[in-house]
Design a protein around this nucleic acid. Structure first.
Lengths: 217, 217
DNA sequence: GCATATTTGTCCGTATGTATA
DNA sequence: CTATACATACGGACAAATATG
């Protein structure tokens, strides 16, 4: 029988910390002490430093030489930058999508799951399903590097979302918009789907920025 | 008087290895032993492992759990993927460029330098100048994340270039094409500039793939 | 298929430099 | 300015995984 140990300790720990960050357990701006964290996770400082490198590259941590690592605090400039990338990546993926790409199945599932969770008012779950929908859109491009890039920016975005408390406002309105985009894609109207997505992203960005500025008061 | 010690040891070592990789001193596919390399560089194994993490994220090294790190060997799929990203990133940057962006100055300098080195038949230098030209194009977008992404894929691409021996064929024909793109941009014809760039990239990709397949025989 | 040697993954203790109170 | 806390880097150790004969 195989040990259920799936990943290397480094990867596993990275997952743990990643989750603590996006869940808000480790607040943005918080300084992460090597000694304290390594003791709490019962891993060595060497190993923890390797994990820090990983998460820094992903944009979840910020590095200050000789001063330590801090949980990133995405600001307005970061949000704007991230949404520009999303426009670029997602819209082009949709525009050039093949009709019967396997990722379409994932998009369909994400939409129906979001609808179900929406009825139960599980807005956090809806948010996750929405993110899966967009991740599936990127899959349409069949690009290993685009997928890696998108994983990074959506982690950063999740971090920004995390501290905007009105989850319903942030996610609920988008369920049916995703459904509409999917319908257009299934109808072979790629260009219209891309335009709908573009409008979607613009609206979403405005909402996030507004929520962020309310909080910054 | 300050010590001239500029960077962290980790960063400095990463620079060293990066250079050895793109210069071909460390051949693609070569396995890098932690013990041997750390002794050769007179740094500890722990420090070297952090460097490996850094370069792995950049795509210059490939990681195999419990087996070690290898110098990456970009294959055809990687080349194709990278060029798709370049089309997406560079063309959109050019299409949406502001007229008087500071990066235009850098583009201009890169072109004139490439012309000068071209006369001296310094094709490696021409290649570097060409890369700076395209890096400047990405700067036009003013996106921190796009710049980071582009740094990574161009390091990977340089690695692929490195082992195609005909540097003149790979770089010489592109000097004047870059000049033409710059001229179109200066004339405010962004769309034409983007289309010229797109054709440029398609040709470049074909050349690289052909050289790669000749070598693979 | 087995025993052995090599190498990675991880941990610990410690010394040094740098930033902050 | 001193003291303190912490990040940076080192070297040694051992277990686990892998490769080798």
């Amino acid at each position: 029988m195989k040990k259920a140990e799936p990943a290397l300790l480094t990867e596993k720990t990275a997952d743990t910390i990643r989750h603590k960050i996006v869940s808000g357990e480790l607040a943005p701006g918080l300084r992460l002490s090597e000694a304290a964290l390594s003791e709490q996770l019962t891993i060595s400082r060497n190993t923890l430093r390797e994990v820090f490198r990983l998460l820094t590259q992903e944009g979840l941590l910020r590095y200050e030489p000789n001063r330590g690592v801090y949980v990133a605090e995405p600001d307005m400039a970061a949000i704007i930058d991230i949404y520009r990338l999303r426009q670029l990546i997602e819209c082009s993926a949709l525009r050039n999508a093949y009709p019967l790409h396997p990722a379409v199945e994932r998009m369909t599932q994400a939409v129906s799951q979001a609808r179900a969770l929406s009825l139960q008012q599980d807005w956090t779950g809806v948010g996750t399903a929405n993110m899966q929908f967009h991740s599936a859109i990127v899959d349409l491009a069949d690009s290993e590097r685009l997928n890696r890039i998108y994983r990074n920016i959506s982690a950063e975005l999740r971090l920004a979302f995390g501290h905007l408390n009105d989850a319903e406002l942030l996610h609920a309105p988008y369920v049916e918009k995703n459904g509409a985009i999917l319908a257009l894609l299934n109808a072979g109207q790629n260009e219209q789907a891309a335009q709908a997505l573009s409008a979607y992203l613009e609206l979403s960005q405005r909402t996030v920025l507004a929520a962020l500025s309310r909080r910054a008061r």
